[in-house]
Nucleic acid binder design. Structure first.
Length: 294
DNA sequence: AACCAGGACACAA
DNA sequence: TTGTGTCATGGT
């Protein structure tokens, strides 16, 4: 009975890359929908099913669609960034050196603003695995099905704001998101009726874009900074979560009394500079992989 | 079995 | 300005 939208169209593309650690990038807690699949990764980008594999200085993509331009994926993967320049722009203190040394090739993606905003609204005081589960449920129940070739794992697109705006809070809570449900619902409604346009914030000054994001209930400084960094292109945004608090306290204020959030944000500006967001991601991933069981 | 997780918010002192 | 309780859920 299903008139499934399976397609036989496929396209492949290959890029040469240097210092691009796809595993670290997709596992570093900036995105939540990629799954390991046959030696690579399966995900959804711009409404298309995408398979990625990386080895020996190459990234290969296979897409369940026919496409002549690959700009959308190059943009998502940020293949055009001058990575050497990013590394040169980071401070060369000892903790930073260790973090970069540990996670060389870790990159920042450029995600869809609405998906990013919604995802991080759901992220508060949840472990990354739980965030993945909630988002998976959300996509299964409210996302549009995506056409895939036979044999590919099926999936749904991330739900649009319009779709979620028409859903009840109870239905959202059924996706295990708890007290975050009214936050997501209100964000969806405001995006749906145009009171806020997440993507449009990218051409504002960062502080101004942040203020608009923080007008949303459930969006504070940390979540706003995640959206700025992961989807709007503000590389100087510096999300401070519990891990980063520990990292900064240990590495830059060792032995000192508990440092306040404003002081940490001040450090981000004065010490980490225009690529602070990369520094943040390195510290975050470094501390997380270090603290994992031996 | 407690403890805590990529927080935000209202309210206290 | 900084400190506490609350919100929901379940992984480790």
């Amino acid at each position: 009975m299903t008139c499934n939208s399976a397609t036989e169209a496929r396209s492949c593309k290959r890029w040469k890359v240097t210092d691009y650690d796809l595993d670290a990038t997709l596992e570093s807690g900036q995105v939540f929908r990629w799954r390991r699949h046959k030696g690579g990764w399966m995900g959804v980008v711009d409404g298309r099913r995408v398979y990625l594999r990386s080895s020996g200085g190459r990234i290969e993509a296979e897409v369940a669609a026919s496409c002549r331009s690959w700009r959308w994926l190059e943009e998502y993967l940020q293949l055009n960034v001058d990575y050497a320049r990013v590394l040169r722009g980071l401070p060369s203190d000892e903790p930073m050196r260790r973090a970069v040394d540990c996670c060389r090739g870790l990159r920042l993606l450029r995600q869809d603003p609405w998906e990013c905003l919604a995802s991080f609204i759901l992220s508060s005081t949840k472990q990354i695995v739980q965030i993945q589960q909630v988002i998976e449920l959300l996509c299964q129940r409210f996302g549009a099905p995506i056409g895939v070739p036979a044999g590919w794992p099926v999936s749904n697109d991330f739900p649009t704001a319009d779709r979620l705006a028409a859903v009840s809070e109870a239905e959202l809570r059924a996706c295990k998101m708890g007290f975050r449900a009214p936050y997501l619902l209100e964000a969806a409604r405001r995006v749906a009726d145009g009171r806020i346009d997440p993507g449009g914030l990218s051409h504002l000054p960062m502080a101004e874009a942040r203020e608009h994001l923080m007008e949303l209930p459930g969006v504070g400084r940390k979540i706003a900074d995640c959206v700025l960094l992961f989807s709007l292109g503000f590389t100087q945004a510096f999300p401070v979560d519990v891990w980063i608090q520990k990292a900064l306290q240990e590495c830059y204020f060792a032995g000192d009394q508990k440092i306040s959030l404003p002081r940490m944000h001040a450090l981000a500006e004065t010490h980490f500079g225009p690529w602070a967001g990369y520094a943040q991601q390195y510290l975050f991933h470094y501390f997380r992989v270090i603290q994992r069981k031996p």
